[in-house]
Each structure stands twice: as structure tokens, then as C-alpha cells.
Design a protein around this nucleic acid. Structure first.
Lengths: 223, 223
DNA sequence: CGTATGTTTGACACCGCTCAAACCCAGTGG
DNA sequence: CCACTGGGTTTGAGCGGTGTCAAACATACG
């Protein structure tokens, strides 16, 4: 295993960046790299929890299937994003599934090793706590939003956030509309209609997967 | 400050229970007790984050107001529940509000002191990580549920969970139906109708705030 | 170039929200 | 102890948003 390459992976994650050099190296030593071709299922709900996972390159979809069989897209990892921190302490069964959307490289750290590391490094623990507390807050916000806003509001928020994340305008949607639908908990038809609605209000311009935000304040008003 | 009493408060929290005696005492030394009469606002969104809070006795409502002005009830703390762990690492502004529903005793720990404690005790950090990861998982599940299940499903889940938490059957609803409504992101009218619907299906018996679960499996089927 | 997948459009039904009014219940003050 | 009052709950009518089903259309990939 190439330690240099592992270090690069570790350095992608803000949580690790604040660690002193020697501790980063400690982490890097635990890293195992994997490649997953497009479409590969990385893990399924019910699998034994095994790894903390950093996405080095590619795109990975994290989703959950509800009791009624519907798939709920939780997030799409971009390079530098990570996953599995919540599962690490939580029983030994995964409750989500991960799929590689395109060819992807991931760096994995064994669960046990990672836990030992946390025991030894309070600094790392506190970093991880900070990260997780942010996640809790944003999840709570999303939950509130998803039960108060209508579809136009949710799509508006999604577009503004996506545009901001890509730091471009116009920008290309990173997801198929079908996937945006499952992400926002709705159907492709409704997404299609909502796009039309936002366009006719002059808030955005959309053509295919190209979207241009015209009136960001107007979009924010809908949330 | 009565250290003995503070220790009792600390012992209410599972996360602290696993700590060795001497560390528990450390924690207890940081505790300040407060009493809030019914109706008191403990803190508001926008307030500076200051404390980690353990509810010793009473009931405290944690809520968030969405952009459109609607209130979303996030949870109701029962004795032994705690709050503020997510806010501790997250900017310095609270994004939720807490209100005492009945006369309540809370134990508070200063944010700074708590953070220093975490730096010193990896064991405590890891306990807190485990707690937070569970929260993340259940929030994700709730989010999935709230966008896939219909009202009957959500109410069914709420009733089953509440019954299990109280460990009684029949049991008395701990919340007014009006509050159950804002908790589930709907209106009192819909709650009322949904109760009727569950009753007519023979899944529950309800009279006033007394609820008896007749067919738990049937309720689970709705989710 | 053809097939599969994604997207759009339309028709329609239904769930849940809103508004309005009646009812029930608990707490208060006489 | 009882009437009054205010909040909570229930019921009804009406409506809008969103899911479903179906079909036409666009796009991507082999």
C-alpha cells in the first residue's frame, strides 16, 4: 500500500487536516484503497459494518429503502466526502446501501482500527464530534424543511445549494432528474412540473440538465 | 452546589454512566442546577450557545421555527434526556428553542468546561460519539419515513414508539393532539381524523388522551 | 440505427390543508 | 358548587398539491 497515496486520501478530509503530521501518518497507515467500477454495490443494508470510507474519486450514492419498498436517496458522495462515521458506533448492521455511480476510488479504514485510533487521540475525537454535530443540525433542518415546505420550496433549496456547491452559474445538474426526485422524496413527474413552474416564474432558466439561477432571492422566498 | 445531587443528575445519562467513578465526579463538579417554572423559555434560536443540558425532572419542548413561520416540534425531553450536545460544536448560535412545558429542573454544564473535559477524556468522547451516531441514524430514518409514509403510517409509528417508551398499554398520550400534530408536521384536524381511521380499522382504541394499542403488527404494516 | 432509459405532458383521483362551526373539557371565579 | 370562559378537539365542506397511470417524446449508448 502506497503510504503517500494514502496520505493524499487522508488529506481530502477536513476532519483529518487539523491533525498534526505524525497523527495523519498514523491514520494513513490504516488506509486501504479500493476501486469500484460503475454500478458496483459497495455495501447493502444488513451488511456487517466494517469500514470508514473516504471517496477519493468518482461518485457514490448512499440510499435507504423504506419499509414500503421506496428508495430514499440520502446523499451522493463527491470526492473528499466520507461516510460510515455514524455506522461505526451503531450495532453491527448497516442500515443504508452504497453504490458507485461512476468508476470510483475509495479509501477505507477498518472499523476496529479506527475506534482504537479515536481512543488514543482526543483531538481526532473532538474533530469527529464537531463534524457529527454539524450533521445532526443539518439533518434536523432538513427534516423540518421536508415537513413544512412544498415541492417548489424543496427544489428551490436544492438548486440554490447545488449551484453554490458547484460554484457556477449556469451549472449542470449532477444528478438525473429522476434521482433528484428520489432525493427530494417525490416523483420524476412532479420534478418536471416544478421545474416548469420555477421557469415560468422567471426564477430559473432550464434546458436539459443545464440550469441557470436567475433570481436567487426569489428562490429563497419559496423555502 | 450540592455535589451529591449533581451526581444524581449525571447518573441519569447513559452516556456518563459508563465512566469510572472519579470521572463522573469530575463531570458532577461542573454541573449547575436550575429550576424553570412552567412556560419558561430556556433559550431561543439565535441565543449564544452556552450549555449542555440534562433534564432532571419535568418536561422540556425543543422546537424549531421554519422559514415560513411554522413551528416544528423536534422532541420533548423527559427526565434523563439531554440536549445541547450538537450545538456545542456548531457555531455559537442556537438554531432551536427550548421551553419548559411543566415545572422543570435542569442540570447545566458550561460549554467550555465540557469541551475541556472531552479533550481530557477520550472515553467520554467515544461515548458521546456513539450517542451522536445513533442520533444521526435515527434522524436519517425519520427523514426517510417522513417523505415516504402517509399520515396513518407516521401516527402509527408514533403511537407504537410512545407506547413502548411508556411501557404501558393502554397509556395516556404525553402530548396534546395539537402538539402531536406539529411533531408529525401536520394539523390537529388531520390527527383527529387519522385517530378515527386507525380506530375504525380496529388497530387501536382511543378515548380522549387514553390510547390502547390493539393490533401492533397491524400498525407496523402501515409504516 | 435501434433499443433502453430518462423526461415531459395530460387526465384523474386522493390525501391532507384551510376555513368555519360545533362540541367538549378543565380551570376559574363567583 | 355551578356557570363561565378559553383552549383543545371534532366534524364538515371545499380545494389545491401531488401521486398514479398512460402515452408521447428526447436522449444516450451499444
Amino acid at each position: 500500500m502506497d503510504l503517500q497515496q494514502a496520505l493524499e486520501c487522508v488529506n481530502l478530509v477536513p476532519m483529518f487536516q487539523s491533525l498534526p503530521e505524525d497523527q495523519k501518518t498514523e491514520v494513513a497507515k490504516l488506509v486501504v484503497q479500493h476501486h469500484y467500477p460503475k454500478g458496483t454495490i459497495i455495501y447493502l443494508a444488513g451488511d456487517k459494518v466494517g469500514h470508514f470510507m473516504i471517496l477519493e474519486a468518482g461518485q457514490v450514492k448512499i440510499s435507504q429503502v423504506a419499509a414500503n419498498g421506496k428508495e430514499q436517496l440520502l446523499k451522493v458522495l463527491q470526492p473528499g466526502d466520507f461516510d460510515g462515521e455514524a455506522a461505526l458506533f451503531n450495532g453491527d448492521q448497516r442500515n443504508m446501501a452504497a453504490t458507485a455511480l461512476v468508476d470510483s476510488n475509495v479509501c477505507q479504514i477498518e472499523q476496529d482500527a479506527f475506534q482504537k485510533l479515536l481512543q488514543k487521540s482526543p483531538q481526532l475525537s473532538v474533530s469527529l464530534l464537531a463534524t457529527m454535530s454539524q450533521q445532526i443540525n443539518s439533518l434536523q433542518e432538513e427534516k423540518t424543511l421536508s415537513s413544512t415546505a412544498d415541492m417548489a420550496g424543496k427544489l428551490a433549496k436544492y438548486l440554490v445549494e447545488t449551484g453554490a456547491a458547484l460554484d457556477e452559474n449556469p451549472f449542470k445538474l449532477p444528478l438525473k432528474k429522476k434521482d433528484i426526485a428520489t432525493y427530494l422524496g417525490t416523483t420524476p413527474e412532479t420534478i418536471s412540473r416544478t421545474f416548469k413552474q420555477l421557469t415560468s416564474k422567471g426564477l430559473i432558466e432550464a434546458k436539459g440538465s443545464q440550469v441557470k439561477i436567475i433570481d436567487e432571492d426569489g428562490l429563497d422566498m419559496l423555502v
